[in-house]
């Protein structure tokens, strides 16, 4: 099973949102990382058919997905970033509706819906209208809707948005479990969401793929770049100019500053790099704003 993006370009007037994306994806979890405006949602919208590309194509097992049509859509599961459901439907009704969109038969739908609701801790509220759900419940429902028809390709746009830490871990683990033999594209700003489960991280910025590596390789490449420096409070401002600040934390009466710089600052100790450091190195501090 192979999903290929070949020379994908998307223009909005004069603005080029995607500048020629070339990717080949095989079964596994891919973390799509990038700042706002990088083109992540554009890429996902083109894959799900919600947008038309300007140039290029996406193929699945060698065939253009536009030609495949329903045959491709039936194997695609999509969890959008924004809430997309009917507020007056109950969770149960909504999932049955989604099952009908995917052409599932009733028996199979009943089984899968019950499974998905249990998995995402929504079984108790299955007969309640979605309009009354909390943000986290709505998000979990969207994930359930993406899973019920057992798709081969899972597109998850910020699936952990609105979830508490415990639910975040649960969803992360769930994705890790169900991703067997599937191509999972997970777009997120929360690096820990993909840190432990992603096969590869695809770093996207300004419509271009900056880098595509395993998390281990990315971290290895950061060796000698991340330093920890402990200073007095009145020296914090001066210390911040020594490199890109990755983090600031209290250490007793002093302040521990984590810096990203190839040149070790005086008195600094090398720190183990994390994927947050990788993110900041590629996208800079403005990426968070």
């Amino acid at each position: 099973m192979e999903l290929c993006f070949e020379g994908l370009v998307k223009n909005y007037g004069k603005k080029q949102a995607l500048k020629g994306i070339d990717l080949t994806l095989t079964p596994g979890i891919y973390g799509l990382l990038g700042p706002n405006g990088a083109g992540k949602s554009t890429l996902m919208n083109i894959l799900t058919g919600n947008l038309e590309q300007t140039r290029g194509q996406i193929t699945f097992d060698g065939r253009d997905i536009r030609t495949l049509g329903p045959a491709f859509r039936g194997r695609l599961g999509y969890c959008p970033q924004q809430p997309a459901f009917y507020p007056t439907f109950t969770a149960d009704e909504f999932l049955f509706y989604m099952a009908s969109l995917h052409g599932m038969d009733r028996k199979a739908a009943e089984t899968r819906i019950s499974w998905a609701l249990e998995l995402l801790s929504l079984a108790r509220v299955r007969h309640e209208p979605i309009g009354g759900f909390s943000g986290g419940m709505k998000q979990r429902l969207l994930i359930a809707a993406a899973l019920i028809h057992d798709p081969d390709i899972l597109v998850l746009d910020e699936p952990t948005a609105g979830l508490d830490p415990e639910q975040r871990i649960a969803v992360r683990n769930l994705i890790g479990r169900v991703a067997l033999n599937k191509i999972v594209i997970l777009s997120t700003h929360v690096v820990p969401d993909v840190e432990f489960i992603a096969k590869e991280l695809i770093l996207l910025d300004r419509g271009q793929v900056l880098c595509r590596q395993t998390p281990e390789a990315l971290l290895k490449a950061m060796a000698g770049q991340v330093w920890s420096l402990t200073v007095d409070e009145d020296q914090v401002e001066a210390a911040q100019s020594l490199g890109q600040v990755c983090g600031i934390a209290r250490a007793g009466d002093q302040v521990a500053i984590r810096l990203l710089t190839p040149t070790p600052p005086k008195g600094a100790v090398e720190a183990a790099p994390t994927l947050d450091d990788v993110y900041l190195r590629f996208f800079g501090p403005e990426a968070g704003l």
Binding site: T48, G49, N50, G69, P70, F72, R73, G74, L76, Y78, P80, Q82, P83, A84, F85, Y86, P87, M98, L101, H102, A145, V155
Partner: peptide, 17 residues
């Protein structure tokens, strides 16, 4: 408009239906 207001057009398009 109800499909657009509820953002369900995303799901409908993705499902190909």
């Amino acid at each position: 408009p109800a499909e657009r207001e509820s953002a369900m057009t995303l799901q409908l398009t993705a499902s190909g239906q």
